[in-house]
Design a protein around this nucleic acid. Structure first.
Lengths: 241, 241
DNA sequence: CGGTCTATTGACTGGCGTCAAGCACCGTGG
DNA sequence: CCACGGTGCTTGACGCCAGTCAATAGACCG
């Protein structure tokens, strides 16, 4: 039995669950664990036997290069079943790390598989979860390839706010995101110095505040417009899937 | 009944199928269609009722910006079930376009769903297919964020060769990839001019040849090394999934 | 109180974009 | 047959966005 409230909430944002299905999810066995900022939750190259669900804080997928540089390829918020991927992929092509202090629950692959066999609808919803990850990644590709650093940063802030708001842990255009500017650089594919400058420009433009890991969006409209943010890719409509 | 040979081959590269499962796939109904280079196969914002499988040629996912710029977020080769995503996501967050001349088969979502309900193992393999897409996208994110243009280009060539080789339509380090340098720029997030220059550098370095849509890798080892290409993310090992 | 981590700032560099022009190739129509 | 416009490849000149290097300052910590 684990903290599945946030995960359930994220599923129910996208489809309706029967009482039976809710029970199945609630009864998933999970080994809870807590990680400090920067710690590795799942290691690149390993073959996990369980998948992890973020219950509090932020986790990220990270790939590293020989040079020591890192790229963060995904950010995960409470309710995200981060590592369903590993169940199908077997070998991790990336690490999962804690961004800030982060709590997760490890659920055995075997149990997840049982659920998917028993309940095809839940199987589809697990599938959906990884598919949304994919949609987010595509958007990130477009941000990296075709948007300016400033747009990219603005886009990230919009995305995080909407996702956190959907997860029920952000409102009033404010949220906590306890990352260093260096980590932010790893997310955006930028150097720390440049992240710092672009943050300042957004602040100076009256678009947002960002201090001590707390983000306050001052003008969501403008932020979304300048970054061409369109939340369609987050699939936040409730429909039969 | 459609051209599912390449798709079956790609599944069998990753897991074993029973005779029964092979029949189920073979008997999937599919509406064949052919597209010329540049044509849209699935349109951004639409709600498809069928998913498409590439049977010949190349397709790509493409997102466009207000400025008219485009970013290609994925390239798909014969045997790729491109658009399984749309079954879960409902609304397309991107278009699917033909890169060169391209043949596809459209399979009704309903039929795919039937298969997944009837056969959980095939359900997992469909899921696997979208998960591999996700792994490729993560790698692209890292290429865009942390590799130089030259490394990125080299990495793409390595990836395409390995994927095509796995699909059984490339060998001897040569393959066809009928795209313009402009399309290549949309894949790499670069300008045409820069693509051209980097291609020339790779040619001058004796790493590859690329003319008339035909790529010949002269030194795969060196290409893979300079771009830190590691095929793990393609999940090309046959194991029980 | 020094050591480490993070944010910030300035000076300089370089990778990649932009603009523009020239070529080669193609299919079309006079 | 050739003129043509369109498309794609190539090259040069130039400019800007973002990286690198380096230094400072504050916060936290042992």
């Amino acid at each position: 039995m684990v903290q599945t409230a946030a995960f359930l909430r994220s599923l129910e944002r996208r489809d309706s669950l029967s009482d039976d299905e809710i029970m199945i999810i609630r009864e998933l066995p999970g080994r809870p664990a807590a990680f400090a900022a920067g710690e590795e939750i799942v290691v690149e190259g390993s073959r996990p036997k369980e998948s992890c669900l973020v219950t509090a804080g932020f986790a990220a997928r990270s790939q590293s290069l020989r040079s020591g540089e890192r790229q963060i390829t995904a950010v995960h918020v409470p309710g995200d079943f981060v590592d369903l991927h590993s169940m199908m992929l077997k070998v991790m092509d990336h690490s999962v790390v804690a961004l800030g202090p982060c709590k997760v629950a490890f659920v055995p692959h075997e149990k997840i598989r049982e659920v998917t066999v028993r309940n095809p609808h839940l199987a589809r919803l697990f599938w959906l979860s990884t598919t949304i990850d994919g949609a987010i990644q595509r958007t990130w590709i477009t941000c990296l390839g075709r948007r300016s650093a400033e747009q990219h940063l603005a886009h990230l802030v919009c995305e995080l706010y909407i996702r956190l708001e959907a997860a029920g842990i952000a409102s009033d255009f404010a949220f906590e995101f306890p990352v260093t500017q260096m980590q932010l650089g790893d997310v955006l594919g930028l150097s720390v110095v440049h992240v710092n400058r672009k943050l300042q420009e957004l602040r100076a433009g009256g678009l947002l505040e960002w201090r001590d890991g707390k983000v306050k969006i001052r003008d969501f409209e403008r932020l979304a417009k300048m970054s061409e943010f369109d939340p369609t890719y987050l699939s936040l409509r409730r429909e039969s899937r």
